[in-house]
Measured scan of single mutants.
Amino acid sequence: GPGLTDLFKTEKAAVKKMAKAIMADPSKADDVYQKWADKGYTLTQLSDFLKSKTRGKYDRVYNGYMTYR
């Protein structure tokens, strides 16, 4: 089956995709945050998933999740 690194890459891609969806349409934020909360994502995990070469690119999404939880 898929190894943990593959799983991480898949999760990371999914999280980034959802983060971009929030940035494009902030009204989606609560739905996405709820999904992440259901998956039990911690802020540390989210921070790892949303690492970007562009500093602060996903800060709004991260901060939103922090206040959501």
Rank of each mutant, 00 (worst) to 15 (best):
G1S: 10
G1R: 08
G1E: 09
G1Y: 11
G1T: 13
G1L: 13
P2Q: 13
P2A: 12
P2T: 11
P2D: 12
P2G: 12
G3L: 10
G3W: 09
G3T: 11
G3A: 12
G3N: 12
G3R: 05
G3D: 12
G3P: 12
L4V: 11
L4K: 12
L4C: 15
L4W: 11
L4H: 12
T5L: 12
T5W: 06
T5D: 13
T5Y: 08
T5I: 13
T5V: 12
T5G: 13
D6S: 12
D6Y: 05
D6A: 11
D6M: 06
L7E: 14
L7I: 12
L7A: 13
L7Q: 14
F8R: 08
F8T: 06
F8A: 10
F8M: 10
K9C: 13
K9S: 05
K9A: 10
K9P: 06
K9F: 07
T10R: 12
T10V: 11
T10F: 10
T10L: 13
T10C: 14
T10A: 14
T10S: 13
T10G: 08
T10E: 14
T10D: 08
T10P: 07
T10H: 10
E11C: 06
E11R: 06
E11W: 04
E11Y: 04
E11L: 04
E11N: 04
K12V: 08
K12P: 03
K12W: 04
K12T: 07
K12C: 08
K12R: 14
K12E: 07
A13Y: 09
A13K: 15
A13L: 11
A13M: 10
A13E: 10
A13G: 05
A13T: 07
A14E: 14
A14W: 13
A14C: 15
A14Q: 13
A14V: 11
A14R: 11
A14M: 14
V15Q: 00
V15T: 03
V15S: 01
V15Y: 01
V15P: 00
K16A: 04
K16R: 14
K16W: 03
K16H: 06
K16L: 14
K16Y: 04
K16C: 06
K17M: 08
K17A: 13
K17D: 07
K17C: 12
K17R: 13
K17E: 09
K17G: 07
K17L: 12
K17F: 08
K17W: 08
M18D: 14
M18K: 03
M18S: 07
M18V: 02
M18N: 07
M18A: 13
M18T: 04
M18E: 15
M18G: 06
A19S: 03
A19W: 01
A19H: 01
A19N: 01
A19P: 01
A19Y: 02
A19Q: 01
A19F: 02
A19C: 04
K20R: 14
K20T: 06
K20E: 12
K20I: 11
K20H: 11
K20G: 06
K20M: 11
A21F: 07
A21Y: 07
A21D: 08
A21R: 05
A21L: 15
A21W: 08
A21V: 09
A21E: 15
A21C: 12
A21G: 05
I22W: 01
I22N: 00
I22E: 00
I22A: 07
M23E: 03
M23N: 04
M23Q: 05
M23S: 03
M23W: 03
A24G: 05
A24I: 14
A24V: 10
A24P: 00
A24C: 13
A24L: 12
A24Q: 10
D25H: 05
D25M: 04
D25Q: 04
D25R: 03
D25Y: 04
D25K: 04
D25P: 00
D25A: 03
D25F: 04
P26G: 06
P26C: 07
P26W: 13
P26F: 07
P26Q: 07
P26I: 07
P26D: 05
S27G: 08
S27M: 07
S27D: 08
K28S: 07
K28D: 03
K28Q: 09
K28F: 06
K28W: 05
K28P: 01
K28A: 11
A29I: 03
A29K: 04
A29N: 03
D30Y: 11
D30W: 09
D30F: 10
D30A: 12
D30C: 14
D30T: 10
D30L: 10
D31G: 09
D31Y: 10
D31T: 10
D31H: 10
D31V: 11
D31F: 13
D31E: 14
V32Q: 03
V32K: 02
V32E: 03
V32R: 00
V32M: 05
V32F: 05
V32C: 06
V32Y: 07
V32I: 13
Y33I: 01
Y33R: 01
Y33F: 08
Y33E: 00
Y33K: 01
Y33L: 02
Y33P: 00
Y33A: 00
Q34F: 05
Q34L: 05
Q34D: 04
Q34Y: 06
K35N: 08
K35Q: 15
K35A: 10
K35V: 13
W36I: 02
W36C: 00
W36V: 01
W36D: 00
A37M: 15
A37I: 12
A37W: 15
A37D: 05
A37V: 15
A37S: 11
D38G: 08
D38L: 10
K39F: 07
K39E: 08
K39T: 06
K39W: 10
K39P: 01
K39N: 11
K39R: 11
K39I: 09
K39M: 14
G40V: 01
G40Q: 04
G40M: 05
G40L: 04
G40D: 04
G40W: 03
G40R: 05
Y41G: 00
Y41A: 00
Y41M: 11
Y41F: 07
Y41T: 02
T42N: 05
T42G: 05
T42P: 02
T42V: 02
T42S: 09
T42A: 04
T42E: 04
L43Y: 06
L43W: 04
L43A: 07
L43E: 06
L43P: 07
L43K: 06
T44A: 14
T44C: 14
T44E: 10
T44I: 12
T44Q: 13
T44W: 09
T44V: 12
T44N: 12
T44R: 15
Q45H: 08
Q45N: 06
Q45K: 08
Q45S: 06
Q45Y: 03
L46D: 00
L46Y: 00
L46N: 01
L46P: 01
L46R: 00
L46I: 11
S47W: 09
S47I: 06
S47Q: 12
S47C: 12
D48P: 03
D48Y: 12
D48G: 13
D48M: 15
D48C: 15
D48I: 15
D48R: 15
D48V: 15
D48N: 13
D48Q: 15
F49C: 05
F49L: 08
F49S: 03
F49N: 02
F49M: 11
F49K: 01
F49R: 02
F49Q: 01
F49P: 00
L50A: 01
L50G: 02
L50R: 01
L50P: 00
L50Y: 01
L50I: 03
K51C: 15
K51N: 09
K51Y: 08
K51G: 11
S52D: 15
S52A: 05
S52N: 05
S52Q: 05
S52F: 05
S52E: 06
S52K: 03
S52W: 04
K53I: 06
K53W: 05
K53R: 08
K53M: 06
K53C: 09
K53V: 06
K53E: 13
T54H: 14
T54N: 11
T54Q: 07
T54I: 12
T54Y: 10
R55L: 15
R55P: 15
R55V: 15
R55E: 15
R55F: 11
R55M: 11
R55W: 09
G56C: 07
G56T: 05
G56L: 04
G56A: 04
G56R: 06
G56S: 05
G56Y: 06
K57T: 04
K57E: 11
K57H: 07
K57A: 06
K57I: 07
Y58H: 03
Y58W: 08
Y58M: 02
Y58D: 01
Y58A: 00
Y58C: 02
D59N: 08
D59C: 10
D59R: 09
D59W: 14
D59L: 12
D59Q: 13
R60S: 13
R60G: 13
R60M: 13
R60A: 14
V61K: 00
V61L: 03
V61C: 02
Y62N: 03
Y62W: 09
Y62D: 01
Y62R: 09
Y62C: 10
Y62I: 15
Y62F: 15
Y62G: 02
N63L: 14
N63E: 14
N63D: 08
N63T: 10
N63A: 14
N63W: 15
N63Y: 15
N63P: 02
N63K: 15
G64T: 02
G64E: 05
G64M: 03
G64K: 02
G64L: 02
G64F: 02
G64Q: 03
G64P: 01
G64S: 03
G64R: 03
Y65V: 00
Y65I: 00
Y65F: 06
Y65R: 00
Y65T: 00
Y65M: 02
M66A: 15
M66L: 14
M66P: 01
M66T: 04
M66D: 06
M66I: 12
M66K: 15
M66Y: 06
T67P: 03
T67Y: 13
T67K: 15
Y68F: 09
Y68D: 01
Y68P: 01
R69W: 12
R69P: 03
R69K: 12
R69D: 03
